[in-house]
Amino acid sequence: MANFLLERTVPLPLPEAWRRLTEWPRHADVVPLTRVRVTTPEPTHEGTRFVARSGLGPLSFEDPMEVTVWQPPGDDTPGRCRLEKRGRVITGWAEIEVRPGPGGRARVVWREELRVRFVPGVLDGVVERAARYVFGRAMNRLLRRA
């Protein structure tokens, strides 16, 4: 099991930082070889489900997720979203928080616990470093793009 924490402070209002991180199909624009399909009606709420499919051809897998906590931020109040990962290959959870930061900026915190089936625990450090890189890069790109 890999656990990691990512934090960023960005010059965005809380609702805009939240929007950029929680428009699920946008994640496919910033994660290589990945498509995202929302399988429940919009708007996002507790119970929303979506599937990220990553890889090429027979070397791909699906990462189905469900929103289990959905508390959007106000202009000055924090927001929190929790996703449960329920796939055959990837399990665990992710939490995204957006809260007031210094100077009217948004402070974003992304926590994740990731389990990759068929990968022995001795490789958890490798999984954590790879996930930190991929999700950190995705988070940076999502927050930069309007």
Score class of each variant (00 low, 15 high):
89 V>W: 05
117 R>E: 04
122 V>M: 15
127 V>F: 09
114 L>D: 00
86 R>M: 13
58 P>W: 07
9 T>F: 10
12 L>C: 03
70 W>V: 03
14 L>E: 00
109 V>K: 09
61 F>K: 03
49 R>A: 12
132 R>M: 01
13 P>A: 12
68 T>E: 13
35 R>K: 15
46 E>K: 04
117 R>D: 02
142 L>T: 05
92 G>E: 06
33 L>F: 15
15 P>W: 01
126 V>N: 01
5 L>Y: 11
64 P>W: 03
69 V>M: 11
120 P>I: 01
138 A>M: 11
97 E>H: 14
68 T>P: 13
9 T>N: 12
133 Y>A: 05
129 R>A: 11
46 E>Q: 11
57 G>Q: 02
8 R>K: 06
119 V>I: 13
78 P>T: 00
120 P>T: 01
136 G>A: 06
80 R>N: 04
124 D>G: 08
146 A>T: 05
43 P>K: 02
124 D>M: 11
40 T>R: 09
120 P>C: 04
15 P>S: 02
104 G>V: 08
70 W>K: 03
19 R>V: 00
57 G>N: 03
4 F>E: 01
120 P>E: 07
77 T>Q: 14
56 L>D: 04
94 A>E: 14
86 R>D: 03
50 F>R: 02
63 D>E: 10
20 R>S: 00
68 T>G: 09
98 V>A: 10
25 P>D: 03
14 L>K: 07
55 G>K: 10
40 T>Y: 14
21 L>P: 00
140 N>T: 08
60 S>V: 02
51 V>N: 08
98 V>H: 08
58 P>I: 01
5 L>Q: 06
102 P>W: 08
34 T>P: 09
127 V>A: 09
96 I>R: 12
13 P>C: 03
112 E>L: 08
54 S>V: 12
143 L>S: 00
115 R>P: 00
21 L>M: 07
78 P>S: 13
124 D>F: 11
139 M>N: 01
115 R>K: 05
44 T>D: 14
47 G>F: 11
91 T>V: 10
109 V>M: 08
71 Q>P: 01
112 E>R: 14
39 T>G: 05
82 R>L: 13
124 D>N: 15
12 L>F: 07
83 L>A: 02
145 R>M: 04
126 V>D: 07
123 L>F: 14
3 N>S: 15
65 M>R: 14
128 E>Q: 15
85 K>C: 06
51 V>A: 07
119 V>M: 02
40 T>H: 09
88 R>W: 10
78 P>R: 15
85 K>V: 12
18 W>C: 02
90 I>A: 08
96 I>S: 06
39 T>V: 13
19 R>H: 09
128 E>C: 11
2 A>P: 00
112 E>G: 06
120 P>R: 12
146 A>R: 15
41 P>G: 08
9 T>P: 01
115 R>N: 05
47 G>Y: 11
37 R>T: 15
71 Q>A: 15
73 P>W: 00
90 I>K: 10
26 R>W: 11
38 V>I: 15
30 V>P: 14
85 K>I: 12
105 R>V: 01
92 G>P: 06
130 A>V: 14
134 V>I: 15
103 G>V: 06
48 T>D: 03
100 P>E: 05
14 L>W: 13
32 P>W: 08
28 A>C: 10
101 G>Y: 03
115 R>Y: 06
10 V>R: 04
45 H>N: 08
80 R>L: 14
126 V>P: 09
140 N>H: 08
58 P>R: 13
84 E>L: 14
19 R>E: 06
5 L>C: 03
116 V>L: 14
26 R>I: 05
